[in-house]
Amino acid sequence: MLRRWLPFPLLTAALILTWLLLNESLSPGAILLGTLLALIVSRLVVRFEIPRSRIIRPISALKLACNVLVEIVRSNNAVARIILMPNKRYRSGFVLIPLDMRNPYGLTLLACIITATPGTLWVEFDSKEHAMLLHVLDLIDEDEWRRIIKERYEKRLMEIFE
């Protein structure tokens, strides 16, 4: 019964929260309508046959989020410096990185983190070779970047999801 009405509890909660934020009210009517809509929508979403997964370690997920935030601020600074200093030399390029992660949610989150960080861009992923192509704006050392992606993000995402 619970499984039937709440197939994705996190999604339902997020939808209710979105509804309340959009309405900017905590009145019983808004909560009731939001809950109803969220329940209906999350039941309809089952039809998309989304692969199931869950976050095993919420605390390390939170830690990773904080790290990503710090990293975004740092690389904002770095990229702004490259753009604003006309004489600054930089070398951009592609790096091929083999991945060990197989969880689709982990891979999606990795792509989002890499692309959201200025200076790095997830360009392509090959599901047969399990490798990704990364474009880096300020590529100093290729092996360094492969190590950063694997150690800083992939290992911890695997911890969170697998």
């Binding site: 030399r89 990185i97 090959d126 990704m132 290729e142």
Partner: peptide, 25 residues
């Protein structure tokens, strides 16, 4: 760079990179 699957055929090792120096260089 060529497609990831084809890179092996072109005897390209993992981690090898395509680097383009800045135009000024």
């Amino acid at each position: 760079p060529p497609m990831i699957g084809k890179q092996r055929m072109h005897s390209l090792q993992e981690g090898e990179v395509f680097v383009q120096e800045e135009e000024q260089d």
